[in-house]
Design a protein around this nucleic acid. Structure first.
Lengths: 303, 303
DNA sequence: CATTCTTACGTACTGCGTAAGAATG
DNA sequence: CATTCTTACGCAGTACGTAAGAATG
């Protein structure tokens, strides 16, 4: 019995499949199979029932599962309370929404590597909903996304807010001054996927003005939405700070609206009992980075 | 960080020396040194202060010590509650008094090997006092000895009693009938070492009869005491069941006494939180074996 | 027939003991 | 100067991935 075997068993039991555990552990199926066989041999007990195609946990396996949780949490606690930050090691799966990639992400990644040089990151951009699901399933350790993940089993830190504004190409010849939903409904809208935060915000805004836009094209990224808007294919909702270049060059124009678009609050979230101690550190670090970022912005504004 | 490293650290910290830990773990000094260095490297923290000749534990080391206890006990608990008895493995250090070697020991060892084929035994005979000390220091896992080890931190099982009787060679020409301490004080006495149970029992008996024996020779084993008695060098106190052959052959004669010699109660003892789960099993097994032995004796008596 | 677990095999690595070295009291 | 810990080195056992096999729904 050793940690690797226990950890492997834990994920195989939790994910209900050797294949999934292998993926989670960056190992092969055969390695997982072997580690669990060794564990079973060392106890002389079957932990999984292999008579069916997919291995199902046995009663003894369920018993070990409870112990494994204790053991792995204790091990995580030891590492967390003893180890120096610059010796923390392991792989952190960090998921984030697109808004994050163009705002705090580069600085955060840089800071993580400075503070935790041995930690390896697995970065993945996805829609918020997808991120939340994967945080729940344990396939991500930390997520950075708009909104808050409900539930007491998560640790969250606010990252600050990102301003969003309607934008369009000057070619579109939108009227000057503050536009209402009813004013804007004439133009085609470019949004992210139907399930996204972006899409809902847009729909809510139009509904609040009792307006209904004729057409909402969807795509899967703000960058694409921006390029479509630059091409004059419609209006879209973007964070100005991420598209400052396009605004300065005149490719995109910010449209003032009434009511104004709400700023989006972003948070860093991880599971409170994440087996990866670094995860919690990174959530706190994300906040630090965004706080620092905020103060820089304020300085710039003061100049 | 792995179990081996933690276990090694635990013993090095507990015994206060890498050398002692190496001995305890059946490994070399250099291995212990390496395992602890690896552990320190993985945490980026010094667990021992090596500026002096013998390594002394640091504050961080003391912190890890508390965690290590938890971790090792949890691991022991897992093995104990999950593993089949015939898959239990490890080395058990079994200490016993001489009375035990000639009574229950052979049967016990046989039964242990039947029931726990993977368990390796390290047997050692010693005086009771020595055994108790070594149980306290952790250098023995289980002891079988006369009397009871005081304290709540030990698990004990009674093994039953062993009769003791005064014996001497017929050459000595002792009077017939029941002899009192005052009758017996004329002859030289052969006892075990001054600190032994044997010695104290003899002194107490003489004192109870307000007698005082002229001379008590001591040796370190009952077998030697018996051979001295056979040679006619004095009277000694022996368990008749262990020297049945000498009695039958007439080399030794049992001396009836008044008051009669008290039977000695023997117990199997191990630490309640022994890191070796098999230790507790063996204590229970020792009782089983002695119970079985008792029933056999009774059958023999009935015939 | 795609998916899931097992088995076989070759390689690379890691962990151990031996032996020599350094330090200390 | 004996004892205690560290370092160097070579061997051996082990753990992993690749690839092929078996079973299942």
């Amino acid at each position: 019995m050793n940690f690797k075997q226990i950890e492997t068993f834990y994920w195989a039991a939790k994910l209900g499949s050797f294949t999934a555990a292998a993926e989670r552990l960056n190992a092969t199926q055969s390695t997982v199979s072997m580690r669990i066989q060794d564990l079973e041999y060392s106890f002389g007990v079957a932990l999984f029932d292999r008579s069916q195609r997919s291995a199902r946990i046995t009663a003894k396996g369920r018993e070990l599962m409870r112990y494994s949780e204790q053991l792995l949490h204790l091990a995580a606690e030891i590492r967390e309370s003893l180890a120096e930050t610059d010796t923390m090691t392991g792989t952190v799966r960090l998921g984030f929404a697109e808004v994050i990639s163009s705002t705090w992400l580069p600085e955060l990644v840089k800071t993580i590597h400075e503070r935790y040089p041995r930690v390896v990151l697995e970065l993945d951009e996805a829609l918020t909903q997808d991120l939340v699901e994967r945080l729940h399933s344990g396939s991500l350790d930390v997520i950075l996304a708009p909104g808050r993940v409900p539930g007491y089993t998560f640790t969250a830190q606010p990252l600050g807010t990102v301003e969003f504004a309607w934008m369009a190409s000057p070619k579109l010849d939108l009227p000057e001054g503050k536009l209402t939903p009813k004013d804007l409904q004439r133009w085609p809208v470019i949004a992210l996927s139907r399930e996204s935060f972006h899409h809902t915000t847009i729909e809510d805004w139009f509904r609040s003005g009792k307006a209904h836009c004729q057409r909402i094209d969807t795509c899967k990224s703000l960058v694409i939405a921006a390029s479509l808007a630059v091409a004059g294919l419609g209006v879209t909702l973007l964070p100005p700070r991420c598209f400052a270049r396009e605004i300065r060059s005149g490719e995109l124009r910010v449209i003032e609206t009434d009511p104004p678009m709400p700023a989006v609050e972003c948070t860093a979230t991880c599971s409170v009992d994440s087996l990866q101690p670094v995860a919690r550190h990174i959530v706190d670090l994300a906040r630090e980075v965004s706080d620092f970022d905020k103060s820089v912005e304020m300085e710039l504004a003061a100049e």
